[in-house]
């Protein structure tokens, strides 16, 4: 039953993204993108990735919507639409351009599908990615760093410098945004 729901939701995902791209009103497009994020969160939930689903819902549906609306309030709400005459004049050129883009996209899709053919099956427990360093983390992390939870041990100890770098990047970005967006006294 979960599989059926997942398939329907993947279909809804495609519909949402195509609708968001095709809309001329950028505000409506933003709102539909919020729905896209909610649907994506459900799919992550079905895959048992609760933390990713959480990030998707809070960043995708929450903060991104607010940021895009802030950008729209500073710029303009509508997309540039060419006039009737201009549209008629360039119809042939546009069709040519769209055809070329379609062929390029199709080629990229083919290459990507070809690339996935060598990969192990979905959820395969013997896949190399699950035995590279994971075994050591599972068996030795408790005696090496004395932390009960593997994920915490990996993030805060084995990859401690990586986490420190990520945190400082996010902190710098936050400080820079506060300096850019603060209201001037004038």
């Amino acid at each position: 039953m979960v599989d059926i729901i997942e398939i329907i939701y993947l279909f809804i995902l495609i519909v949402c993204s195509v609708a968001a791209v095709r809309m001329k009103d950028l505000l409506s497009s933003t709102v539909v993108l919020g729905a896209y994020s909610l649907v994506m969160a459900i799919i992550w939930m079905d895959l048992n990735a609760v933390d990713v689903a959480f990030t998707e819902a809070s960043v995708g549906a929450g903060i991104t919507t607010v940021l895009i609306i802030a950008a729209l309030s500073r710029t303009t709400r509508g997309e540039y639409v060419p006039g009737i005459e201009e549209r008629y004049k360039t119809r042939k050129a546009r069709r040519l351009k769209n055809g070329a883009l379609f062929i390029v996209t199709l080629c990229t899709f083919g290459v990507l599908v070809y690339g996935t053919m060598d990969m192990p099956n979905f959820g395969d427990p013997d896949a190399p990615a699950r035995h590279h360093v994971a075994d050591r983390y599972i068996e030795k992390s408790h005696e090496e760093v004395y932390v009960e939870n593997f994920v915490t041990a990996i993030l805060a100890s084995y990859r401690g410098y990586d986490t420190l770098g990520e945190t400082s990047v996010i902190f710098t970005a936050g400080v820079a945004l506060m300096m850019l967006l603060r209201r001037s006294k004038s």
């Binding site: 505000l27 709102v31 919020g34 549906a61 929450g62 903060i63 919507t65 607010v66 609306i69 802030a70 729209l72 309030s73 500073r74 967006l181 209201r183």
Partner: peptide, 17 residues
Amino acid sequence: FIGTIAFLKYRETGRLD
């Protein structure tokens, strides 16, 4: 409701800050 609040504030005042 975060997105909804941002949207309504934008419609009411035309800006977010």
